[in-house]
């Protein structure tokens, strides 16, 4: 089944809870199956699936009981992400992930769709139903905010690899 992992990847970062994310992906695939006649073969199937996912997510957001199902930012433990790998890698990746999850949702969506999923700006604009200029500005702000989050804590002992990664992320002149 194509693109399920991609959908789950983005859904995980939107919902921040695995079971909610899986439900969202499942609903996305069922909607896609039901409405497959609306898919235009010459267009990008992945973008179409993401459009369904984002619509469902927005609908989910509008429901009054949604706040009980999703984890709110203030109660979400950014340091308790389950990232496999060795300890150093895990700590550092958790930092990155925490930075992504702290982004405002509108910026996070654009960042995920563009950087992680590799969708074109035009496709993202169609998915999120916003102008392309807005996509670009949100993406720029997301990157800048993420850099800000990722500034190394002076008190934190970083491995040489982490320091190298952090240096790579620093804006020029910082």
């Amino acid at each position: 089944m194509p693109h399920v992992r991609s959908l789950l990847r983005t859904a995980m970062r939107l919902c921040r809870r695995q079971e909610v994310a899986e439900d969202l992906v499942q609903e996305t695939m069922l909607h896609a199956w039901k409405g497959f006649s609306q898919f235009q073969p010459e267009t990008n199937c992945k973008a179409w699936l993401f459009a369904i996912l984002m619509n469902l997510w927005n609908e989910h957001h509008r429901k009054p009981w949604v706040r009980h199902e999703t984890v709110m930012e203030e109660e979400f433990d950014f340091d308790q992400q389950v990232v496999p790998g060795n300890f150093d890698d895990r700590v550092f990746m958790n930092e990155v992930l925490a930075g992504i999850d702290r982004l405002p949702e509108e910026q996070r969506c654009v960042l995920l769709l563009s950087v992680v999923e590799g969708l074109a700006l035009r496709e993202i604009a169609e998915i999120l139903k916003i102008p392309m200029g807005t996509v670009m500005s949100r993406l720029g702000r997301a990157r800048a905010t993420l850099r800000e989050y990722m500034r190394p804590n002076p008190g934190l002992m970083l491995s040489s690899r982490e320091r190298k990664l952090c240096d790579a992320m620093k804006p020029k002149g910082y």
């Binding site: 089944m1 399920v4 992992r5 789950l8 990847r9 995980m12 970062r13 695995q18 899986e22 992906v25 499942q26 695939m29 069922l30 992400q81 389950v82 990232v83 496999p84 790998g85 990746m93 990155v96 992930l97 992504i100 960042l111 995920l112 950087v115 992680v116 990157r143 993420l146 850099r147 990664l165 790579a168 992320m169």
Partner: peptide
């Protein structure tokens, strides 16, 4: 570098989708 880092972090935090695919 930043893009690679973001992608790697998000990928590594995503659970396996095999069970979900089977369920769907």
């Amino acid at each position: 570098e930043l893009d690679r880092l973001i992608t790697a972090a998000v990928n590594r935090a995503t659970p396996a989708a095999d069970e979900l695919v089977a369920h769907i």
